[in-house]
Amino acid sequence: MNLYRSVRAVAGASGSDAIDWESAADAAKAATGPGSLALEPGERRAYASDVREARTAVRTVSGVEFDVPNTVEIQNRHHWIDANVETFERVMGTLEPHTDEFPGIARTINTGTMTVLLAFLGRNVLGQYDPLLLADAPDDDHALYFVRPNILNAAEQLDVDADRFRRWIAFHEVTHAAEFGAAPWLSTHLEERMEAGIANLSEGRFDRRTFRDLDAAMTVVEGYAELLMDHAFDDEYADLRRKLDARRQGRGPLQQLFRRLLGLGLKQRQYERGKRFFETVVDARDLETAALVWEGPEYLPSHDELDSPGLWIRRVER
């Protein structure tokens, strides 16, 4: 970790964009130790086995035929930052540079903010299913990442078996692959709302409806993944979830502030709200009814329906 090099990279932000993405990536990596990728014998095979077995179990539970990504990577933290700075740049590419009297100062501030985001997430993300939103290469349209140093560090902090914890992460990320496999329209649906929301922000407007639609869609994505995990994972995991939630809530005030600023509290709310919605639907009907959300964008529950699943059930069963 080299904080001086990180600050220097941010201070040297240049170019014509609102964010100097190369400087943000360099600064984030300078502020973040990469962690070890010295795999134990058989560890790579164990990751691959977890992914294959998760695919089989999730296919069986969901009834959805889908493939896991061709790109399955065991990464260190710097690898994750490099992969995700490209995603952030694609998603935020419509953000117009500041046209005020001090564009260089605004660019430096924006680059510093992105550096903090990438560095914090790079130290905390465990696994990631990446649908590569807004990517130009249709033949390579999704990827699956495991950030090995973070998985091992979290397992040690939580005092849980590292192999079991890794397997749980694999199952969770594969459930997301199942969702995008069940709903080929989902990537486009999310992309359109992200582009619209960011375009409005770049013009100084906040489109509440667009972000509410995006939040509702992501709540469905996270909630359905939790539903599949409940039925597909071949071991109890309530203890893992409880310990991970306690770890998040028990962190120091600075990390809690970062989580609020980065919207990670919102993500936790999406997990919980989405899980309640699908549990209610399955209790009232079955897994097949819950899977109707992937029939098309019009089947996604509205914000009101997420809190009143009976309204959604009556609408889709007409």
Rank of each mutant, 00 (worst) to 15 (best):
L95D: 07
L190Q: 11
E53K: 13
G104F: 07
R52F: 09
P138M: 11
D161Q: 06
A83N: 04
D163A: 06
G104M: 06
T111V: 04
V72D: 00
P97Y: 14
L152Y: 07
H79P: 00
V58Q: 05
P131S: 13
H142L: 01
D140N: 09
D163R: 10
R59Y: 03
S187P: 01
D159K: 12
G122T: 02
L117I: 12
P138I: 10
W80Q: 05
I81F: 07
A54T: 06
R55D: 03
P103E: 07
E53V: 07
T188W: 08
R59G: 06
D141Q: 08
F66A: 08
A182E: 03
A196H: 06
A196W: 01
I151M: 13
L95A: 14
P97W: 14
D130P: 12
F66K: 06
I81V: 10
L186Q: 07
A54C: 05
W185H: 10
R107C: 03
F146C: 07
V61C: 06
E192Y: 00
A137E: 15
R148D: 02
L132T: 08
P103F: 08
V91W: 05
S62Q: 04
F120P: 02
A135Y: 02
E96A: 15
E173I: 05
D159W: 04
V147C: 01
G63H: 10
D141N: 13
V68P: 01
F120N: 11
W80T: 02
N150Q: 04
A83V: 00
A162T: 09
L186D: 08
V64I: 14
V160L: 05
A83H: 01
V85M: 03
L118M: 12
E195M: 09
E192V: 08
A182Q: 06
T71M: 00
L190V: 15
T113C: 04
D161H: 02
T56F: 11
L95S: 10
A119Q: 07
V125R: 01
V51I: 11
A57F: 09
R148G: 00
I109F: 15
D161V: 06
T94C: 13
E53W: 08
R193S: 11
L126N: 07
T71D: 00
A177D: 00
R107G: 03
A155Q: 09
F180S: 02
L190G: 09
F146S: 05
R59A: 14
R90K: 13
F102N: 13
H78Q: 11
A119K: 03
R166K: 11
V58P: 01
W168F: 13
I81R: 07
A183M: 08
V58Y: 03
F88H: 15
D67C: 03
A162R: 12
A106M: 13
Q157E: 13
E96G: 11
L190S: 07
N84E: 14
W185M: 10
L118G: 04
V64F: 08
F171G: 01
D130S: 15
D161A: 05
E192L: 06
I151T: 10
H189C: 06
T56E: 15
G122W: 07
D50I: 03
N150R: 04
A54Q: 06
T115E: 05
M194D: 01
H79S: 04
A106P: 05
E173V: 03
G122I: 06
P138T: 12
D67G: 09
Y145F: 12
